[in-house]
Design a protein around this nucleic acid. Structure first.
Length: 555
RNA sequence: UGGGGUGUCGCCAAGCGGUAAGGCACGGGGUUUUGGAUCCCGCACUGCGAAGGUUCGAAUCCUUCCACCCCAGCCA
């Protein structure tokens, strides 16, 4: 994490540009998603970076949909992306753009390149283009169409636009250098023909579409972007980005600076659109918003907060080294945020029936329970106590290991907000499994305090058998077993475990999305699958569990 | 084997010639009506991919080497 005085390398560049009075000290960035899929936590890094930089330098950040390939893009994704960016807490204001807004301008620029003899229509087949391009170690060969006259090219390109050629029969190419060691400079494709696939915004108005390499620098320049931030794999494209803007300098007003940074990788998950799509398509997850997915919609449904994600993006820093961030850092940022805002509530996931023998049969009491020890302003609620309660199965052990602070024969524990109890008898089934225990309580310890201030080691959560309501709880762990998953076989078969829990009655009217801490378990939120008669909770993240560590040491 | 990048603690990441920030993870302790939270302490003892060199002084400059990542879509 950076100290307040330290800047990341992009900020260093911006600071220097400001000192040199570049762009009139203006800072303008953009987040340019292609509407061909859903945003994920990796995009969040880019969004936080671009919008964050703009905010920090009193600039603006545009949201621009890079919609130059109708065969892959859909309007539905546009709306989903807007929703996600907004949810993350960023506002593009009036700066919502589409590359397709610039198709006319892009076309005129292409004409200009042709007139300068810097672009030509090439009739080589895709396969031939590949062959002519050469390899990493061998230079390419000039296309036989490279020396066609300007007038001929103008005519042909116009023909392309008019739909006179079939898909794949020809393309517009830049005329740069087939012997360049940088393959991107070997006469790259600027326009290709796409017929029969209407564009989600321009319909059938165009049958030629600009490539990323061609449209991106021009779109940036049109919008007056000062710093065009992208990921590392575009580093090789920067000479082309600059070449295009230099050749078009009389047509576009400014020349943005392309800066590349390392994309985010997280342990135990995958980030590429292809792999995420595969998880959805194969049905390993229920959809893009499955709570196990690293998509923004998945994280949102899981119960992540925008604040936690932003904090995380701040914590991981921005640099050029390829890296894989430990998912534990994301979870740390999440807990840090949820700890302060989540009301505490009791839920028993694996119930064990407890009868308190010396508690009157028909009696029940209302007890006070604070909603959040971190925040007194969140107030308190009443909880109901009675003769029969449920505790967690693993909060009882007949023959406890060392350092077991919970209920066992002879050991006194506190029921949170209620009374001290002691185990008096254990009832088992034929197989020897504990099915019920009988306890006695100390009436002098109401609220969980004793006058003699005797110590109890453990405090257990519980619910009243008579009042608790059932709820489905979905427990999640990482989608992949290995920190750096490669194949489907690295998938975690137990990434989702469902169970039926007993929860406090106050949750009966909990609304979808609302977030709670289930005491001693973790943070949970109400899932959209909830029905009036059956709440469904997603485990957002478990509480840190030092007992689990101690147990491992003991073994 | 061409070009472009990157290598600082288990994982991120500051450092920009003056003697290795911070966060996560991990370990120890205090406190605690969540084995939560919180607080304190420890955590790169000539070490910054390696080897040489320049310098009073090098993670920072120079040289050579090594490792890893990206590029041969009419995808972005």
């Amino acid at each position: 994490m950076k100290t307040p005085e330290s800047f990341n390398f992009i900020e260093d560049i911006i600071n220097q540009d400001i000192v040199l009075n570049k762009n009139n000290k203006r800072v303008e960035t953009r987040f340019p998603p292609e509407p061909n899929g859903h945003l994920h936590i990796g995009h969040a890094k880019s969004i936080c970076l671009n919008f964050g930089l703009a905010a920090k330098y009193n600039g603006v950040c545009h949201l621009r949909f890079d919609d130059t390939n109708p065969t892959k893009e859909e309007a539905e994704y546009v709306e989903a992306i807007k929703r996600d960016v907004k949810w993350l807490g960023f506002d593009w204001g009036k700066h919502l753009y589409y590359t397709s807004d610039y198709f006319d301008k892009l076309y005129v620029c292409a004409l200009e390149l042709i007139k300068k003899h810097k672009a030509f229509v090439c009739h080589l087949s895709p396969d031939e283009i590949r062959q002519y391009r050469g390899t990493l170690t061998h230079t390419g060969q000039n296309s036989p169409y490279r020396e066609c006259s300007i007038d001929e090219n103008l005519k042909l390109f116009e023909g392309m636009r008019m739909g006179e050629f079939e898909e794949g029969s020809c393309v517009l190419r830049a005329r740069i250098d087939m012997s360049s060691p940088n393959l991107n400079m070997r006469d790259p494709v600027l326009y290709r023909i796409i017929k029969n696939t209407p564009h989600h915004r321009t319909g059938t108005m165009w049958c030629i579409y600009p490539s990323y390499d061609y449209s991106h620098p021009i779109s940036d320049a049109i919008e007056g972007i000062t710093h065009s931030i992208c990921t590392l794999e575009f580093e090789d494209h920067r000479p082309l980005y600059d070449w295009i803007l230099n050749e078009l300098s009389s047509f576009v007003c400014c020349h943005p600076k392309q800066i590349e940074f390392a994309r985010l990788n997280l342990t135990n998950t995958v980030m590429s659109k292809r792999k995420l799509l595969e998880l959805v398509a194969v049905g390993y997850v229920t959809g893009w918003d499955d709570p196990r997915m690293p998509t923004i919609s998945g994280l949102r449904r899981r119960g992540y907060t925008p604040e936690a994600i932003r904090k995380f993006c701040e914590a991981i820093g921005v640099a050029k080294a390829n890296s894989v961030v430990d998912i534990a850092l994301l979870e740390h940022c999440l807990r840090e945020d949820l700890n302060l805002r989540s009301p505490r509530v009791m839920a028993v996931l694996n119930p064990l029936r407890v009868v308190i023998d010396n508690y009157p049969e028909d009696k029940h009491e209302e007890l006070d329970a604070e909603n959040n020890p971190e925040d007194p302003d969140m107030g308190s609620r009443k909880i109901l106590f009675g003769r029969v309660i449920y505790i967690e199965q693993n909060d009882f052990c007949e023959q406890p290991p060392k350092k077991f602070f919970r209920l066992s024969p002879g050991q006194e524990v506190r029921l949170k907000h209620a009374y001290y109890i002691k185990c008096a008898a254990v009832i088992k089934d034929e197989e020897g499994k504990v099915v019920e225990i009988h306890c006695t309580y100390d009436p002098e310890t109401k609220g969980g305090w004793s006058k003699d201030s005797r110590k109890v080691l453990g405090t257990l959560h519980w619910v009243s058998a008579e009042h608790a309501i059932p709820a489905e709880v979905r427990l999640y762990s990482s989608l992949f077993i290995k920190p750096n998953p490669k194949e489907a076989e690295d998938l975690n078969p137990n990434s989702l475990i469902k169970c039926t829990a007993l929860v406090e009655p106050c949750l009966a009217k909990a609304s979808v999305g609302s977030q709670y801490q289930f005491l001693r378990h973790g943070y949970f939120c109400v899932d959209i699958d909830s029905a009036p008669d059956m709440l469904v909770f997603n485990q957002t993240v478990a509480l840190r569990d030092s007992w689990a560590k101690t147990q491992k040491e003991i073994q």
